[in-house]
């Protein structure tokens, strides 16, 4: 009986894995299909004659290289900036006396609740007044908010769990706050740094709404917009569209495999919630 239950449990796990993963396999297979072939009669599980040049074709049809470059510039700037701003804020909040500390935690939580659409209209205006509309800075700027108040809170929770005596001892030795943050606190926050890096990467890499709202010149388009352009160019050229989707998704999945060690295994996330 117990054995049967365990078997059912295991097979259920595999069924769920299949449901969530198989579509991705189909996409990969579809991206290698010959362009212009009549529709298949059944679901295709593999491609007898994989057309790898589909991946080359999308770079020729639209300026994919330019889009890719822009996306990389945005990510390469926004991720380190986010790490600095969010870890500094998290560290600062964790070192403040009780009252301001609590107030700032509440402010961060309140920031989490603000719906993204609520800032669309006036971010547009503020970017215009700053002269940053229609530039890659329009996409990078949210890094100055720590990208997401959750990241500030994650750093805050991490630093709160480090015994305060450590920081006090360093203070008495005359260490400045910057030294303590950089030399003492950050090395102890490695899992949080990795987690926030991955989440921030995914956030900026995938961002579709900001370029739609704030970018008008094709030379500043990112990969997300490029995919939509590819879609508008030829809505039924499935092999090319799926190749585009794969190019956009592959780096994120790579990042995800780094992330899942930190978020899905063991207890790292639950540790963060237990003590704050």
């Amino acid at each position: 009986m117990k054995k049967l239950k365990s078997m059912i449990h295991h097979s259920l796990g595999w069924v769920l894995t299949a449901v969530f993963l198989l579509p991705l396999l189909w996409v990969l297979v579809a991206s290698l299909r010959q362009v212009g072939l009549p529709p298949p009669t059944t679901v295709e599980w593999y491609q007898p004659d994989p057309q790898w040049q589909n991946y080359q074709t999308i770079f020729e049809r639209v300026p994919m290289t330019r889009y890719l470059q822009n996306s990389l510039v945005v990510v390469a700037t926004a991720v380190p900036l986010t790490l600095i701003i969010a870890s500094m804020a998290g560290f600062g909040i964790s070192q403040l006396p009780v009252r301001p500390r609590r107030q700032l935690v509440y402010v961060s939580i309140a920031l989490l609740i603000v719906p993204a659409a609520a800032v669309w209209l006036f971010r547009f205006q503020i970017l215009r007044w700053m002269g940053l509309l229609d530039s890659l800075w329009a996409l990078i700027l949210p890094a100055f908010t720590g990208s997401n108040a959750l990241f500030v809170l994650l750093f805050y929770w991490t630093f709160r769990r480090i015994p305060g005596e450590m920081f006090e001892a360093a203070q008495l030795d005359g260490a400045t706050a910057v030294t303590i943050w950089w030399r003492l606190a950050l090395p102890l926050a490695r899992p949080t740094i990795v987690g926030v890096t991955v989440l921030t990467f995914v956030m900026y890499w995938s961002d579709f709404i900001s370029p739609i709202l704030y970018i008008f010149s094709p030379r500043y388009y990112t990969l997300a917009v490029g995919l939509q352009i590819l879609n508008q160019l030829d809505r039924t050229n499935w092999p090319l569209l799926m190749a585009g989707a794969v190019v956009m998704t592959a780096p994120v999945i790579l990042m995800f495999f780094i992330l899942q060690r930190f978020f899905l295994h063991d207890l790292s996330l639950s540790n963060l919630f237990e003590k704050n």
């Binding site: 969530f20 993963l21 579709f208 794969v246 999945i253 899942q260 899905l264």
Partner: peptide
């Protein structure tokens, strides 16, 4: 299995829509 269930969540929105 947990990783598989989480995976579609990280696919970029435009790619996911396509």
């Amino acid at each position: 299995h947990r990783a598989a269930v989480y995976l579609p969540t990280v696919i970029p929105e435009v790619a996911y829509a396509l």
